[in-house]
Nucleic acid binder design. Sequence first.
DNA 1: TGGCGTCAAGGTTGC
DNA 2: GCAACCTTGACGCCA
Length: 298
Amino acid sequence: MLGYPAMNRSLREKDPPRRCNRDMRKQTWEQKGLSYAGELAEQNFADLRSILQWNLAHDIGFYRCSSTLVPWNSAFDIADLPNFERIRSLARDCGKLVKSNDMRLTFHPSHWCKLASESEDTVARSVESVTHHGRWLDMMDLPRSPRYAINVHIGAHYGDKDATADRFCDVITGLPARARERLTVENDDTESLWGVEELVDSVAARINVPVTFDYHHHTFTSRGLTYREGFNLARNTWGEIRPITHYSEPASLHGDTSARPQKHAESVATLPEWLRKESDVMVESNGKEQSVLSVRED
DNA sequence: TGGCGTCAAGGTTGC
DNA sequence: GCAACCTTGACGCCA
């Protein structure tokens, strides 16, 4: 399967626009509070259902939902929203669509989520973040499995990778099951951070968390492994579950010669056949769903 | 209504 | 030690 993240450009341009990433700023949260958060969440879940229906109609079985599905959820318990029952009903609709059509729905909490941080407060906020992502998947009645992944980065080294891996493993082990049993960890795109081999050795082998192989990120953290070798290492951490990989191409090879090498291109042109055959591929490009449709035609 | 400055959160790197 | 950067869209003020 091929998939895309967050925004569906076709539905975003409709009138009214369909999108599941309505958000609010701090000031608005402080002024309008729970009831407005509930309104946004309800609209987001309703539009998530529309996006999944659109995906189904276009034979796209894989989708990564925005983390602003429930804006400011770190500040309240979702069950306290005044329209919680309506939200839960919409969530169940979404889950039914996913399950009955063998689709795959995942999340990717933002780079603020630092589960291996040296700061207790930061860890607590990060734990809360992955936990409420797990709560949303529970509300959709989706199984607690990396098939419906909550994918994170370690995203830092704190000057001591061994100690960082220890903290990461400890925190993951102590997570509530709704997050722990869905968690996956992805290689970083910065040389000093975490490559596939390091994640396999320091995390997957110890606490059985699958490694998401990001093809483009591997360019920066390969540690001498080919793409194929990197993928093979990650694949073996997934057990019976079909692995998820991320694929994108650098903007610098698509004409944007001044772009930093990490930047994603608008589209993808040379998705390797072996990657597609052996994994479900999240296509990360600015073209979003259009990139999936066009790469599939090739 | 359109344009545009700004946005909760962490951490690394460059100057 | 401080500022820029990540990622990038979307919020929301203001003319």
